[in-house]
Design a protein around this nucleic acid. Structure first.
Length: 207
DNA sequence: GACCGGATTATG
DNA sequence: ATAATCCGGTCA
């Protein structure tokens, strides 16, 4: 029995397809703000409005896992656009990414925060919390995000998007300061980075 | 084979 | 401020 408050077929009809994901991660990361991720889990359907993302731009990006080349862990980041790439960080938190660009470019967008519809109690601000609330673990790596049970639909309204440096990648030297983190200026579902990282390279734009 | 450190979070 | 907790990448 599926949640009657969600018209799943109507949502599926709006599914974002390969052409959306087959672009540079920087472009997709920004475009993803305000979109909704639909996850069908047994008889539950979760709809999460994406509030925060980061772009990781392949082997030459010193913060990107693709810099290790294609290993067991990083295999799926070299998959087709619209593939999920999931991994474990700090031994305890899973992170959920969407592969972009294609041509084995190793680009991906990390989802760092969202607001889950009809679930005020479920905090999904922060990459670990987002993945836990939506049930993603590294077992989901390689899954398609253009499937009946997992897919994105376009934003219902325009978002003001704030751009900053990425969080937690200080080790990446010059690439640490690139403006590749995007979040909805409205603020709900956005993680609260450590004070040392707030305001790095920040600027607001309309999209 | 060992060792290091991380795309984080909860708690003091 | 700091512990928790695992595993891949790196070097021996």
């Amino acid at each position: 029995m599926v949640d009657a408050s969600v018209d799943l077929e109507a949502l599926r009809g709006q599914m974002l397809t390969e052409s959306f994901f087959a672009r540079d991660a920087r472009v997709v990361a920004r475009a993803l703000i305000g979109t909704r991720l639909v996850h069908v889990r047994g008889n539950r359907v979760q709809v999460a409005r994406i509030a925060e993302t980061e772009a990781y731009r392949g082997p030459t990006d010193r913060a990107c896992h693709a810099r290790f080349g294609e290993t067991e862990r990083t295999r799926h980041i070299f998959g087709d656009p619209g593939t999920a790439y999931c991994f474990l960080v700090y031994g305890m938190h899973d992170c959920f990414n969407v592969v972009t660009k294609g041509m084995r470019a190793g680009h991906a967008v990390l989802v760092r925060g969202a607001v889950v519809a009809d679930d005020e109690d479920a905090r999904a601000d922060g990459p670990g919390r987002f993945s836990r609330v939506l049930g993603f673990t590294r077992k989901d790596s390689g899954r398609s995000v253009m499937s009946e049970s997992l897919f994105f639909v376009p934003a219902s309204k325009r978002a003001r998007v704030v751009v900053t440096a990425r969080v937690g990648v200080a080790y990446a030297e010059e690439d640490a300061d690139l403006p590749l983190r995007f979040y909805d200026a409205e603020g709900s579902g956005v993680s609260r980075p450590p004070p040392s990282q707030i305001g790095r390279g920040q600027r607001t734009r309309k999209t």
